[in-house]
Amino acid sequence: MDFTISLAGVNIEIHSLYGAVYELCRDYLTDHRPDFTVSIAPADIEFEREKSVLEAAREGKPYGNFTADYLETLAIYRKISENILRYDVFLMHGAVVALDGAAYLFTAPSGVGKTTHTQFWLKKYPDAFIVNGDKPLLRAVGGQIFACGSPWAGKEGQNRNVMLPLKAVCALFRGNENSIRRIAFDKVFPLVIAQSYRPSGEAEMMQTLRLIKILGEHTRFYALSCNLDPDAARVAKEGMDNDE
């Protein structure tokens, strides 16, 4: 199938072998002229299958026996993530929640509780919504960072086609009590790099590091120690909002 989507303000023409990715991208379709094109060949799908097998083995998990149309969605997002870098956009693993026109990015290794925490926000603040629950895109525009929706949004698939100024990045840690503190970028940039899409080429990796550096110059960073008490949402929001 051939169609064009808009992600982070960049128009991307997609040539896919299967229809699943078209269904995935329905909310992001556009008629605008594409900025670049992504095409998929069977070898790209096989690459994703082999990568999934290796990752499952490394993590000691059973291989999920994924379908070709699902693997194609992974292959397409990989190619988008590599090519969209030249538009000052990069993928950072995390969950972005939006409230009152601003976006907050929560990041942590898998299993720490990003989804649980952002669900607390949705319950506590009725106007809050998820921009992307797993793989948001961040765009640097004129010294400001924007968090952007994307249909590639993990198991829950929570996402919305918006682009909002990023107010803060918050690293989540499990703790006995809910508390938040500001952290310096030089302490947190290894985590940010670990959570960002890692392209294979040197020029692309240099561009990713350059964008992460811009993120560090224009965004505040926090560490949230949190338990499973829904009050963690209030602690996080007030901690970030009251630290102007």
């Binding site: 970028f185 030089d186 940039f189 392209p199 990713t208 590091l209 992460i212 550096k213 560090g216």
Partner: peptide
């Protein structure tokens, strides 16, 4: 491996790149 090296503001990040860097 090849490394991408960037000054992140006083401290440097070095990330391996290339096919074998995985």
């Amino acid at each position: 491996y090849e490394f991408a090296i960037m000054d992140m503001g006083g401290e440097y990040a070095a990330v391996p790149v290339g096919k074998d860097a995985t």
